[in-house]
Design a protein around this nucleic acid. Structure first.
Lengths: 257, 257
DNA sequence: CAATATATTGCAAAATATAGCAAAATATAG
DNA sequence: CTATATTTTGCTATATTTTGCAATATATTG
């Protein structure tokens, strides 16, 4: 085998396959091992891995690569990104909540921040499919929490599926706080089919929908279409001035906060 | 193995994975152990743990790290009473679980202990109304969790009410693990009306009911009647010998473990 | 309050990454 | 087939990151 490698140059494709296999079977792979095994320079492997990374087939890290399946996108990790922006958004959203209201909270991390800063004496009913949201309301004696049943997704720690959708359909709530994954002037979309179904159902069963969206997600699109953006009533970002970027949304009749 | 580790440098990501695994399986991990296990200096582990902490994947504490838990504190306190007995009960109960089964777990603390000691590779479906139980199954990739919707009781961190009962009625499961509050030869009872309704519903919708009961609760009664004790199929206590106290129950045809 | 254990800080050595470049391999056009 | 363009590869020099160590500070324990 090594005889072959030395004399017949290996195609880049073959190398890529071997790198991917090594990475996925071991969970990780190092430049050192790979450049010996494939008889090419470390630079070449580095470039290979960078390419495979950009194609999303593995994740390049210092010293090598790790398989993407081993990097669960845990909500606990998501929770910690852009935390300050999310807090600003949450404060703005809080001004929309009044006593006696019935609210939908989905599993978005900005929505979770909102749950965390709710005043303890607030007398509302919150209907959610998200464990972290429910946990955040632990010390709110007056806040009634209705949890939506269904199959538990251990990544986001929220329930999904037919049961959850059916649960949602039993209500018509005052406001839905919608954690936005991707928004463009045309469409609201997200990365998970079941999440998309859930968000649509919550929109359809609420009088008003408030989108919570960090600025970097404006004008982006994801795989799963939820609904047309114009269905949104209010859009909240962390920025103070409704600048250029939000104009296309105001045109749709969406109020910007 | 350590021979290998010494010569082949490990990627930081691999170390992180090992640290996370160690921390989540044991509940905690120490610098001392980790730096020996991973053959790096304590400083490196310290820095690793600090990084993982900032990402929210564990909590750095003096001397090491602890796993992050979303289980509310006051619940945890209740959890700690008679913990050793409950662990013994849980181990006995575990022998009754087979792959592919569908199970009801209620919100009892002995039942929670059972959830905690389930092998990670167990392939079962668990239907529960208890947040702590669902949380305990976070790292069990093969265990499907169906969460019962309903009104959240913030004391027990479990759902109750009409919705929950209706959710239960959609199933007929193999085994129900019943956390016993009070049991006499006549009746099963508990301190909360809604909990009583829930436990009865779970019994009615399972083929077999297994009662988990610390010895001090034998021959006691509480306010809310659930059903006749003879409906129970198996009764598990922490004691080894089916002594005098359990005779009245064997007479009813209940198997004692 | 002393004795011990654990943390923090700054630093230098080692490991790894990046950028620019030239040689080799491969592709393309005529 | 040749000449030219393009891509790939490995090398060098220069950043950057990671790591372990030592000195100092802080916390815990009896």
């Amino acid at each position: 085998m090594s005889f072959f490698i030395i004399f017949a140059l290996m195609l880049k494709e073959e190398r890529h396959n071997i790198i991917l296999e090594e990475t996925s079977t071991n969970g990780s792979s190092s430049f050192q091992l790979l450049c010996k095994k494939l008889a090419v320079s470390e630079d070449t492997i580095r470039r290979d891995i960078r390419e495979l990374d950009s194609r999303g087939l593995l994740k390049a890290v210092r010293g090598g690569a790790v398989s993407v399946s081993r990097i669960p996108h845990h909500y606990r990790e998501r929770e910690h990104t852009d935390i300050e922006q999310k807090k600003v958004i949450a404060k703005k959203a809080l001004t929309l909540i009044k006593n006696k209201q019935v609210l939908f909270f989905d599993g978005g991390t900005s929505v979770l921040e909102l749950a965390k800063i709710l005043p303890v004496d607030l007398n509302v009913t919150i209907i959610t499919n998200s464990f972290p949201v429910a946990n955040a309301l632990e010390d709110h004696p007056l806040a009634e929490v209705i949890f939506l049943g269904g199959r538990l997704n251990k990544m986001s720690f929220a329930t999904f599926g037919h049961e959850t959708l059916k649960g949602i359909s039993k209500f018509k709530v005052d406001v839905y706080f919608f954690g936005i994954c991707s928004i463009s002037p045309d469409s609201l979309s997200c990365k998970d089919l079941e999440d998309a179904e859930l968000k649509l159902a919550m929109m359809q069963h609420s009088v008003k929908t408030v989108g919570l969206c960090t600025f970097d997600k404006l004008n982006s699109e994801s795989t799963y279409f939820i609904t047309e953006t114009k269905e949104l009533d209010i859009l909240i970002t962390e920025k103070d001035d409704p600048s250029l970027h939000t104009k296309p949304f105001t045109k749709l009749g969406i109020e910007i906060l």
